[in-house]
Amino acid sequence: MSENQKDSHLKELENEGIYVMREVAAQFERPVLLFSGGKDSIVMFHLALKAFHPGKVPFPLMHIDTGHNFPETIEFRDKLVEKYGVELIVGSVQESIDAGDVEEETGPDASRNALQTRTLLDTLKEHQVDAALGGGRRDEEKARAKERFFSHRDVFGQWDPKNQRPELWNLFNGRKKPGENFRVFPISNWTEMDVWQYIAQENIDIPELYFAHERKVFNRRGVWLADTDFVNRMDEEKLETKTVRFRTIGDATCTGAVLSTASNMEEIIQEVASARQTERGNRHDDKRSETAMEDRKRQGYF
């Protein structure tokens, strides 16, 4: 049987992702797919479509909206929801602020990224979600390298890195007590490169922000931030028009652009292959402290 060659790595990752999707649908009562409009959540949704074909995706999408999104992201999200007829739940950070649940940060680095945690937890609770599918990948950041596919959260939505269930073979233990829930990461084993290659291979539609375009930006500590209403630009930070694209799409206040002329998938893959910075390197929020991600995870961040 020598012709029986091994699957390509993308095929294997896809098979694994589909398997995890189906486990979630089977083991949980009220799962949601956390959808940010970024490439990772788009790939997840693509996997969900495959997992349940010809049926519908059996869970809603949930978007935690900081109110500081690029308009392109929201537009993309709404089109996708309409095209596939899926339910969309939006958790609004603005509402959490208005309700006095959280306090808006102030100062030039003010960001709503940290506030998302509260809105996320509240929205999950409100909808009695018992499993939230996230697009987190283990290659993104040190703290994620030990993350499980099925990541248990206590009733406060907290993650305890010392008390994680061992995960063996392909057996995922999703048992929990009432009020507890899980974060599930079907693309845990994908790298940034895998995601781009897969998007190219599958011809998946992604927001224009990922491709090179002209934009007014300014430089803050080495990160190019877009000029938007939400960012407090200091006087000495001068605006320049640059050809840029985004490697990740998050909150506009902390997601940096990269100078790039990559305007199609092939060029993006080329660029990623020769990149000298991890994609999170352009995220302002991780730069705040060396263990920033880990601290936020403990509090229930994605």
């Binding site: 060659q5 699957d7 294997e12 990752l13």
Partner: peptide
Amino acid sequence: DNKYLDMDL
């Protein structure tokens, strides 16, 4: 012809 598709894991 895309090289990466021939990679395995």
